[in-house]
Amino acid sequence: MLFEITHRTDYRYGRAASEAYIEARLTPPSLAGQEVVDHSIQFLPDAKVSSYVDYFGNHVTFYSMTLRHERLSIVHRSTIRTSEVAHSEAALGVSVAEARQIFTSKLTDLFDYLQPTAAVPTGGPAMEWAGKFFPADLPLGDGLEDLNKAIYEKFEYRSGSTDNSTPLHTVWKQKAGVCQDFSHIMLSVLRTAGIPARYVCGYIESDPPKSEDGSTALVGSIATHAWVEAMTPGMKWIALDPTNNQWCGVRHVTMAYGRDFEDAAPVRGTFKASGTQQMKVKVTMRRLSEK
């Protein structure tokens, strides 16, 4: 599928800001199943930018504004072509016990994706779920699929029920949240079970055009979407979307990775100003016809 994506972030200040520094993880990676046809990032007011690749392999654009300004806008536009990528049935058929042994032999490469973070603690309520969905003799793929389904069924998607500061134990307790929370729950269970897993920030086609391919509406956001990638014994990441109870496919576009939402945030920064600040984000994702 071919998609045209526009991601706009607008900052407004109560009083003019004297400085602003922004990190934007808005450069889509080229992947198996994801071709970057076109891509651009525009900052207003205009200023010099630099770029680097962070610890998790994300391409970061750094923007530095040292002049007074009353508003700041970041507009990311991209055209992305997606295609199906076959899952390795052999890797998903390996037992959980054997998979853990393989991951242990690669611990240097996978260590960060097995550790708890402030946003994704391990243990606690995740311990019961880890034991339930990942017994030693179960095929890894079955455990991943069952966990994905359980989060979808047991947690209610409720917009506005949480924010970035809501601790995960609150999400466990209220059994409600948004895609970020669903992904953090899944990461907590997987890491508790000894399965390396990472957070993915990207876009989802939540409202497809009426067509003959049978695409149905998916639960997503007017901003970015979040899902999870788990490591398989073939040392390949495989993506699951617990918000929609499915393996990720051609309607998902990946932007950035990390241990949790903080590592993969599309835009974050600091400002020097004496007034208040408001941020608005809008994402449009439109399917294009390929002639």
Score class of each variant (00 low, 15 high):
250 V>C: 06
244 N>Y: 08
250 V>P: 01
216 T>L: 12
263 D>K: 00
266 P>T: 12
228 V>D: 05
234 G>N: 14
237 W>E: 01
261 F>G: 07
234 G>E: 12
254 T>F: 06
233 P>E: 08
243 T>D: 13
233 P>H: 03
232 T>W: 00
223 A>Y: 12
222 I>W: 05
248 C>E: 06
244 N>C: 07
231 M>E: 01
254 T>K: 13
217 A>C: 14
217 A>M: 15
236 K>Q: 09
229 E>Y: 04
265 A>G: 06
249 G>R: 04
239 A>R: 02
255 M>C: 07
242 P>D: 08
268 R>T: 08
251 R>S: 06
258 G>E: 13
228 V>S: 04
247 W>T: 09
218 L>V: 06
219 V>Q: 07
256 A>D: 07
238 I>G: 00
246 Q>F: 06
267 V>W: 10
231 M>Q: 03
216 T>R: 15
220 G>H: 02
215 S>K: 15
247 W>Y: 14
229 E>F: 09
217 A>Q: 15
269 G>T: 09
252 H>I: 02
246 Q>W: 15
229 E>G: 08
224 T>H: 01
256 A>L: 04
263 D>L: 10
250 V>Q: 12
225 H>A: 10
218 L>N: 12
239 A>W: 01
215 S>V: 13
244 N>A: 04
239 A>F: 00
244 N>R: 06
241 D>S: 14
255 M>R: 04
242 P>T: 08
266 P>R: 06
265 A>E: 14
253 V>R: 09
262 E>I: 05
266 P>I: 14
245 N>Y: 07
266 P>N: 13
254 T>N: 10
226 A>R: 04
217 A>T: 14
221 S>P: 10
253 V>D: 02
248 C>D: 03
257 Y>E: 11
268 R>F: 08
222 I>V: 08
239 A>Q: 05
263 D>Y: 08
262 E>S: 15
250 V>A: 15
236 K>I: 05
261 F>N: 11
252 H>E: 06
233 P>T: 11
256 A>W: 00
263 D>A: 04
266 P>V: 09
240 L>M: 11
244 N>L: 01
219 V>K: 10
259 R>W: 03
239 A>E: 04
246 Q>D: 02
223 A>G: 14
261 F>Q: 14
231 M>N: 01
230 A>V: 00
223 A>L: 12
230 A>E: 03
225 H>S: 11
245 N>D: 15
229 E>R: 06
232 T>C: 05
256 A>T: 09
269 G>W: 02
218 L>T: 11
216 T>M: 15
255 M>W: 12
241 D>P: 06
225 H>K: 09
254 T>E: 11
267 V>F: 08
227 W>H: 06
232 T>Y: 00
223 A>M: 12
222 I>S: 13
226 A>H: 02
256 A>P: 01
250 V>F: 10
249 G>E: 03
220 G>Q: 03
251 R>H: 15
252 H>N: 07
217 A>Y: 15
221 S>M: 06
222 I>E: 13
265 A>S: 10
244 N>V: 03
241 D>Q: 00
249 G>S: 12
238 I>T: 04
241 D>R: 00
231 M>L: 08
261 F>S: 03
216 T>W: 13
238 I>V: 12
260 D>N: 10
232 T>R: 06
230 A>K: 01
237 W>V: 04
261 F>C: 12
